[in-house]
């Protein structure tokens, strides 16, 4: 890469272009290509080729132990349509993603609004709220697993105020809620910071004008603040949704998809099928489904931006 940089660098030290062939346009063209070359090559080798291979695998039945790799056409896709578990898996994924987006974004916004009051000492709180972001994901999840045990820290804390806590990771409803909440506390700091930056970009005069018109705080928030920070809301929601569909370590450490299959989200099911049940062909089919869902959601969110984003940037 050093050579790349110095090669395109060379003309810079020579006098301004007089060369008939190396016009500014042509040189820009070459520089542009050279600049994106590493990223493009990486995308082809580490993203597109593997994706095509996954598509190819999904048309095969692949038994690793018996060393057989047989073309079966659409059989895996038919199996997908008839898989009695897939409905529950998709429901769990939808529940997790929706729950995470709602909980995460509302908490992030609440924290950002509180911190935006510019009181003394808010920097300390900002650091505290952000700190889990830099704690290793697995370490964070392991700690929460301990605390969510029936005889763990959370229920001890609740018992101290006279409440009998549920068996968080062992009952259907609370297990999913627990995974969502653990994930929210881990990463809400990122969205909070982005919201805080957006809030600080809202001109003070607008608030003052609204106040003198006698608008309540809630009206000001809804009519002025929210529309002005809507691009950030869109961006954070896209990042959060796409991220939520890739949740793996948290499920693996906290619930292993249980109880029942209540927290078996698509990525975890894919991992089970491909790596635990050794159904690599079917696992590849599930991979294609996951890719299709992520793609569809992203396109959808991007389309919707005109509807609820106040100003396009």
């Amino acid at each position: 890469m050093i050579t790349t940089i110095s090669r395109v660098d060379a003309p810079a030290t020579t006098p301004p272009p007089r060369d008939r062939f190396w016009t500014t346009r042509r040189r820009d063209e070459l520089t542009g290509w050279l600049f994106i070359a590493p990223q493009l090559a990486g995308t082809v080798v580490f993203v597109l080729v593997p994706l095509l291979l996954v598509g190819w695998y999904s048309l095969h039945e692949w038994n690793v132990l018996a060393d057989s790799f047989t073309f079966v056409g659409a059989q895996n896709y038919r199996a997908l349509a008839q898989d009695p578990k897939i409905g529950g898996v998709l429901r769990a994924s939808a529940l997790f993603s929706a729950g995470l987006v709602v909980v995460n974004l509302s908490l992030a916004l609440l924290l950002a609004v509180l911190l935006n009051q510019r009181l003394r000492g808010t920097t300390v709180f900002r650091v505290l709220f952000f700190s889990p972001v830099v704690v290793s994901l697995v370490a964070w999840t392991i700690v929460w697993r301990f605390m969510l045990q029936n005889n763990g820290g959370i229920n001890d804390l609740l018992a101290a105020v006279g409440v009998t806590g549920p068996n968080w990771l062992r009952s259907g409803g609370t297990a999913m809620a627990a995974v969502i909440v653990v994930q929210t506390f881990k990463n809400v700091g990122l969205n909070m910071v982005l919201f805080l930056a957006a809030l600080q970009g809202v001109p003070r005069e607008l608030y003052e004008a609204a106040r003198t018109d006698g608008a309540s705080a809630w009206t000001v928030f809804r009519r002025i603040t929210l529309p002005l920070i809507s691009p950030t809301v869109l961006l954070t929601s896209i990042i959060t949704v796409v991220g939520s569909l890739q949740v793996f370590a948290q499920i693996a450490v906290l619930t292993e998809g249980g109880p029942g299959t209540s927290t078996t989200v698509l990525v975890y099911y894919l991992y089970q099928q491909a790596f635990q049940f050794h159904a690599f062909g079917y696992g590849a089919t599930l991979s294609m489904l996951l890719f299709a869902i992520v793609l569809a959601l992203t396109v959808l969110q991007w389309r919707m931006r005109r509807r609820w984003v106040f100003h396009e940037s």
């Binding site: 062992r170 009952s171 249980g258 089970q272 049940f277």
Partner: peptide, 19 residues
């Protein structure tokens, strides 16, 4: 045979019993 999947299926189906 295929015990990983069967063991997992039993485990999921047994979960309602643990209350």
């Amino acid at each position: 045979r295929n015990s990983a999947e069967i063991v997992q299926a039993v485990r999921s189906a047994l979960d309602p019993m643990w209350k």
